[in-house]
Amino acid sequence: MVQKPNTEFQAKQARLIHSIPKLSFGKRLKKDLKKNWVVYVIFLPVLLYVLLFNYAPLFGLVMAFQDFNVLKGVFGSSFNNFANFKTLFFRDNFGIVLRNTAGMALLNLTVGFIVPVIFALLLSTIRHKRYKRVIQISSYIPYFISTVVVVALWKEFLDEGGVIANFLSWFGFRNQNWLANNKVPVFWLINTAIDIWVGFGYGAIIYCAAIANVNPNLHEAAAIDGAGEWKRMWHVSIPSIIPLVVTMLTLRIGTVFLQGFDKVLLLYSPSIYSTADCLTTYIYRIAFAGSADYGVSTAAGLFQSAIATTLLIISNYLNRKITKSSLF
């Protein structure tokens, strides 16, 4: 906008650089409001929305500390300090719920994370462009199917006699309804498998783009040195995308707790609560099914929020440390 002074000018003006005594905050605000009031007025709907749906609920968190009674409402219910949390933590199944949540999250961060990367790498070694495109487009299809349908399909396939059950029976597993199997990693693996099926194509997009953007000179140099597709992938593509992979992983740590729960809600059934129940579905059940204990449910929600936020901060810190850049 205003031309930057060249150094000659700058030198001359150096003695004229003023630390202008800034107008007081109030005066500057007034000036700014006068100039920009239209913009702020236009912003009001957004402000309203954010206050209502994002900030107002935060006040409801006070319910976590209350002996909440629906009839008495927030203002009428008495406080019970941390009693809700005590109830929560010492319930029989809370430890199990935590274990399940951690287990599923861990799988998500390891297997669930690496598959799209591997897929993208494999895809990059395919030279036939048409075929590659067909594969890519097919891989996007599961992403666009609604969760309800995805769950319905998998329920059918995992049922006794369904495709997957049949397939697994070739390997010696009893042909059974896998969604009724309560042994520990079964449900977690199913959950991760569905996550992968749904997300591997879409998740690979960013890695495909990164691989495609690798400096072609590197590839040429490797090819001249006699490296074929596979070797080139190992020695050129992979090292080039490692920074991106690390970034994505650290970002994922921050969000792993916040998603995928409606799928579990649709998939599970009481017989497998002991392995399938995770924090978010637990909160849902306490609130909407059975005891309707809003206080404890909110306490659990607050607990989950705290963990999620901590993870987010940690992941952002890690990310910044590693790549010297931040999320915001």
Partner: peptide
């Protein structure tokens, strides 16, 4: 707003 959520119940009550 991306970092802090009221959670299921509080949001429900606001609505």
């Amino acid at each position: 707003t991306l970092m802090f959520h009221g959670g299921l119940i509080p949001t429900y009550m606001v609505i």
